[in-house]
Design a protein around this nucleic acid. Structure first.
Lengths: 331, 331
DNA sequence: CTGAAAGCGCTTACAG
DNA sequence: CTGAAAGCGCTTACAG
């Protein structure tokens, strides 16, 4: 069954196609009587504008791609990060009358697909999420001329505009707090070294520790609970006498506390633990986790705002949102 | 920067637009020399076909929507169901050169948005996932003429084609097994009554129980771990002497085992537990969970196959894939 | 305020 | 095998 066209609506309402188009697009300069007639015809025919035809002339699609450079397994894991971003972006775009197209691009083939999709004019803008070091997408997409923005600072050399939280500052605040509490042997569980959230939070730790007479003690994780537990085992082996640990994500902090409990260490009495992100699970952890608040949803909102803003109103500089230490019981 | 058009490629290669179009679309009837010249021009100019223009004439978009009628919170929860479906569908579509558009439609506003998007010709087909009872989408989409298929039998009166596993048969097998093991007081934790997976698995349970001299004992859950734990507490209160429970999902079974452990019941000695789905967590449960295997990925593959098949090759009947009891240690 | 007309960038019969 | 031409369904200056 062929869908009705503008033409059919015009014929039925006894007006020109131009007039129907004006009514559909809410132009103010249409006589009320005529408008009603057109509206009635649209309703009777069940007319919906063909988006390909519209896009062809307007050069807009009203769709925005959210590209997640992460395997589906992690996106749909219990890490609330993706969930919060998707929900927030989805909501904000909806308010603006835009449609969200979610694309997973964990493989080189997936990246090529995304590149062609964007180059083919399917979307008006691209939001990049969870960018890793060697991701070719920022460079490839910048060539298409389609506006691109990243949630989190990209590590790539070609760097699209981005919005992020103050990762270094947050890490600094966490470690300074541990120092102020009189902790002597402060370790850190760092995030992946190919992501800026990993790099920057480690940098903040190193900066503060090296400003005191303490030694730095680092183990690596990948932001997951599991990796936090493993890293903690490693740290206890490296230095059984450590008395504090700053984990670069709450999930890793929770994993670390699990390991500490099994090793017979009390938190915070024997070992103080500070996380990063302030996700819901942090509040429900045992003991409730002291952590650095990461305004994930606010960053997501900001990104949509910037992406949808007229080109000349976009900030030239990256937008960095402040973080804040939230003291609970684990440190 | 304006993207190069077919026209520009034609001019550069010294051929007509028709020829360039043939090369781009892989038509066999193009002279090798000319093809090479065109390919070179495409490469030099970085030409990518404008998809709106192409869609307008071909009436195809090469995009398929996967509509999830569930809030983002659940989609991105630790229920692997969505993850498996998204991953599988994404992979299968990629193989077929199609693009996946993921849409969340948990609110009435979201449903309207999806309806308009589909009616506007953005996609060639729609996959519906996690349909609940009163969802207006099946009816609304059927009016658009765009092919629709559902993962799981819809409860709505307007019923699009669907593929599902044998929910009733699987539940029957699970309960029969418990009967064969000599269990006398067999309870069930049912899924949501507005979803067929909830309804059908409960029906299978009732059918077998009522065929014996046993009484049925039912508590409700919503497929989550948490709800399984709560339902189990309810069941223990209702009948402290129960000796078996069939949960309509593994997550609920795992929640139920948690409750049983805290109530001092041994599994399977005091209470046998059988789940449904056979997700990875079932294997790692303590004790490993006896469950009904649900071929989630196979159903997803089948759905894509049917959706992409020529209209006259689509099966007239729903496709039901078999389930199978997997015996481990919990029953 | 309304309409005739051009044009967005493609594909595809139809000739040759 | 290749090209000229029509047409997909819209929007938008431009006249009137």
């Amino acid at each position: 069954m062929r869908r009705p066209t503008l033409e059919a609506v015009a014929a039925r309402a006894g007006v020109s196609r131009a007039t129907v188009s004006r009514v559909v697009n809410g132009s103010a300069t249409v006589n009320a009587q005529i408008r009603d007639a057109v509206l009635r015809a649209i309703d009777e025919l069940g007319y919906v504008p063909n988006s390909a035809a519209r896009s062809l002339v307007t050069q807009r699609t009203d769709s925005i791609a959210l590209v997640v450079s992460e395997p589906a397994a992690r996106v749909f894991s219990d890490d609330p990060f993706f969930s919060i971003v998707v929900r927030t972006v989805s909501q904000e775009l909806e308010n603006a009358g835009k449609q969200l197209v979610l694309m997973l691009a964990s493989s080189p083939a997936g990246q090529t697909r995304v590149e062609r999709y964007v180059a083919g004019g399917h979307v008006d803008g691209v939001i990049l999420l969870s960018l890793h070091g060697s991701d070719p997408l920022p460079a490839a997409l910048s060539r298409t001329g389609v506006p691109v923005i990243s949630h989190g600072r990209p590590v790539s050399t070609v760097r699209p505009p981005y919005c992020d939280c103050d990762n270094v500052g947050g890490a600094r605040a966490a470690v300074r707090y541990l120092v102020a509490q009189g902790r002597r042997r402060i370790a850190t569980i760092a995030g992946p070294p190919d992501m800026t959230a990993g790099l920057d939070r480690l940098a903040g730790y190193r900066e503060v520790v090296s400003g005191t007479d303490r030694r730095s003690l680092v183990a690596m994780g990948d932001f997951t609970r599991e990796s936090g537990a493993a890293a903690m085992r490693q740290l206890l082996e490296d230095d059984p006498g450590l008395d504090a640990v700053f984990a670069a994500s709450d999930l890793m902090a929770i994993g670390a506390m699990h390991t500490l409990r099994r090793a017979g260490r009390r938190v915070p009495d024997d070992v103080a633990v500070v996380g990063f992100d302030d996700i819901e699970a942090a509040r429900f952890a045992d003991p409730p986790l002291t952590t650095v608040h990461h305004p994930i949803a606010e960053v997501a909102k900001e990104i949509v705002r910037i992406l949808l803003a007229p080109r000349d109103e976009r900030p030239g500089e990256p937008v960095i949102l402040p973080t804040e230490l939230v003291v609970r019981d684990s440190a």
